[in-house]
């Protein structure tokens, strides 16, 4: 589904990604863990070209993303993204947040878009908030709306960039629950997270990133119980 080879990215003189390789199969829920500044988020943002990689290969569902002829906007229809800070549109109601993209891109009629949006909002448990504005919602509700919004275009892959890091601790569970459900339905997911419990329980494969490379990867069981790399060991000993 997704193949990444030798991905490099610098911000000015700061080299963030130094040759990342990854392969993600359809239906997998891949968790990316690692210390701050290791390039996890940058890696994720390169996958839908929110950051333009310097070099390397990215292939998503048979499309060479790095090709200059690749239609970025089309690619993003297949790659949904959920951000740490939700990035809901504050001037639009929850329902409008969901229907804006399908309507402006003329992918659905208004009634279709509304129907789909309501179904998604019900699914993430905020159906009753459809006509509210985002600032009336709690952090957890906002993030669930953001997940629903990313799903309106029926993407093939979902990217999660630390979806629970900006939440109050008591809100984390409800968001992870929605993600868990999504994973169990067979959505291909890449989740950058500090929630080790989630990675362990829901993740089908875990990448440990450090200093711009994937320094270890494996099944959650192997990686959490028998880390081979010294850096992985010391990181896990600190967070677990």
């Amino acid at each position: 589904m997704i193949k990444v080879k030798n991905l490099y990215k610098s911000f000015g003189s700061l080299q963030v990604l130094k040759g990342v390789d990854a392969e993600i199969k359809k239906g997998e829920c891949v968790c990316v863990i690692g210390p701050s500044g290791s390039g996890k988020s940058t890696f994720l943002r390169c996958l839908n070209l929110l950051e333009q990689p310097d070099s390397g290969e990215i292939n998503i569902d048979g499309v060479n993303v790095m090709d200059t002829k690749c239609d970025v906007d089309k690619l993003r229809l297949n790659v949904g993204m959920v951000f740490q800070h939700f990035n809901l549109f504050p001037h639009l109601t929850i329902l409008e947040n969901l229907t804006l993209a399908p309507l402006k891109l003329k992918l659905m009629t208004e009634s279709e878009a509304k129907k789909k949006a309501m179904a998604l909002l019900e699914r993430v448990g905020v159906g009753d908030k459809a006509d509210c504005y985002p600032n009336k919602l709690s952090g957890g509700q906002k993030q669930r709306v953001a997940i629903a919004r990313a799903l309106t275009l029926s993407p093939k892959v979902m990217l999660f960039d630390e979806p629970t890091s900006a939440l109050d601790p008591e809100m984390v569970g409800e968001v992870l629950e929605v993600m868990k459900q999504l994973a169990s339905e067979g959505m291909t997911m890449i989740v950058v997270t500090h929630e080790m419990g989630f990675a362990r329980e829901v993740g089908s494969w875990v990448y440990f990133m450090d200093e711009g490379v994937v320094s270890e990867d494996g099944t959650p069981k192997d990686l959490f119980e028998n880390p081979k790399n010294e850096r992985t060991k010391s990181f896990l000993s600190k967070v677990l």
Partner: peptide, 13 residues
């Protein structure tokens, strides 16, 4: 906020 632009762009707009 720059996140608004990213939010919009990530939806294929």
């Amino acid at each position: 906020d720059n996140g608004q632009m990213e939010g919009g762009r990530s939806l294929g707009l």
